[in-house]
Design a binder for these strands. Structure first.
Lengths: 219, 219
DNA sequence: CAGTGTGAAGTTGTTCACAGCA
DNA sequence: TGCTGTGAACAACTTCACACTG
């Protein structure tokens, strides 16, 4: 498909991933400003909160479909709505989580996901000691029950917080059971068929960046 | 430690951040291959694990100072050493953590940081119910004690896992107390003087990417 | 010839420059 | 004047093309 020059169309243009990644940060701040009663916000001001170029912010907001008024800026409340809609944070997203260890438990208990509409509805593990318990109201099932429930509840997001050694195997199961997107926290890259979405979140990557900057600062 | 990319006596080439972020993933896999007794690994094969371009891997490894042999590839054991050294994962990095909630507790208990040489030596909170307890052997202190200990132990990394509302304030304190790098998990951007390193890890960003891909897959 | 190593080309994302607007 | 909005210049990163090597 060619890039259309018509600006009447809603969003035919592929949104750059960096833009997508910045949007939740905008939204968090904007919700706060809204709570504080701020009515308008300009792109340069918004940019200053994140050390970004003002034009960057203008373009990002344009991708979401927002329009501002010269000299005034954007209507905060409208912007919150637009971003929530664009990101899908105002819809309900149910997820299954496999691997009820420290990280898995933390994600389950993490209040913040509610702000993004995501809810972890069940957890799975192979550890008999964990099965049958619940974590902040989220039940931990035997991994063998995963298939059953996934089919019945039409869950589309699967979260992997197992050790690396189990991750690929769990991913394969998830694929077989119809999960559409996998959020992988294990520090390996998992392989899935092209129609399945994978998002790797490797915490080491961030640590590596920090240590690298620390090293470079020292000389 | 000579670097192959340094011709003459030029200043060290700045390593692209994407490269830094990929290196821990290489390292994790390479350690595994090493344990399995693999002696050599070629860039194309390594690349296939991560769905990367082989040239990308070659260049990344060159940045770390690794050299391979045509037709054979790289020596796994040597590569592990080089990457550990380059990333600093073979050195000890002590950190303080502020905010002993779910996320903070998970990070403290997360075994994996040991693989990167990082150790959280103390946690801090303002919640009287948490102060005095310990999490997997890591003591939770009153936030007021932070300064004392930071100065005495020469801790350079500060981890923020507080609610957003407290994050900037904690960052200011950390800066005042000589912390050199801040790893921020609160979903806001914090402001620090230029000599302090900040790494924001916003979990929402990853979720946003997933939801966006899910939405686009539906049309 | 299968792989390293590297300059060149291509692609993507960011910043600049400026027109238009209230 | 301060801001939006957008095409153009620029910078960063990735992929390609190919010389080289055992």
């Amino acid at each position: 498909m060619e890039k259309s020059l018509m600006h009447k169309d809603k969003k035919p243009v592929a949104v750059p991933e960096p833009t997508i990644r910045r949007m939740p940060a905008y939204l968090t701040l904007l919700r706060q400003l809204k709570d504080e009663g701020q009515e308008f916000i300009s792109a340069p001001r918004l940019a200053s909160f994140f050390n970004l170029d003002p034009t960057q912010v203008v373009k990002d907001l344009a991708y979401a479909g927002a329009a501002g008024r010269p000299k005034v800026g954007y209507v905060v409340e409208k912007l919150v709505e637009i971003l929530e809609e664009f990101l899908g944070f105002n819809r309900k997203h149910e997820a299954f989580l496999v691997g009820a260890g420290f990280l898995g438990s933390a994600l389950i208990q993490y209040q913040g996901f509610r702000e993004a509409g995501m809810k972890i509805v069940a957890a799975f593990d192979t550890d008999k000691k964990k099965i049958g318990k619940d974590i902040s109201g989220v039940p931990v099932f035997d991994l063998a029950k995963f298939r059953d429930l996934a089919g019945r509840l039409h869950i589309s997001i699967g979260i992997i917080t197992t050790p690396s050694s189990a991750a690929q195997q769990i991913a394969d199961l998830m694929v077989g059971w119809g999960i559409k997107a996998i959020w992988n926290f294990a520090p390996i890259s998992i392989k899935v068929p092209p129609h399945v979405i994978v998002q790797d979140t490797h915490i080491y990557a961030n640590l590596a960046v920090i240590l690298n900057k620390l090293n470079n600062a020292g000389r």
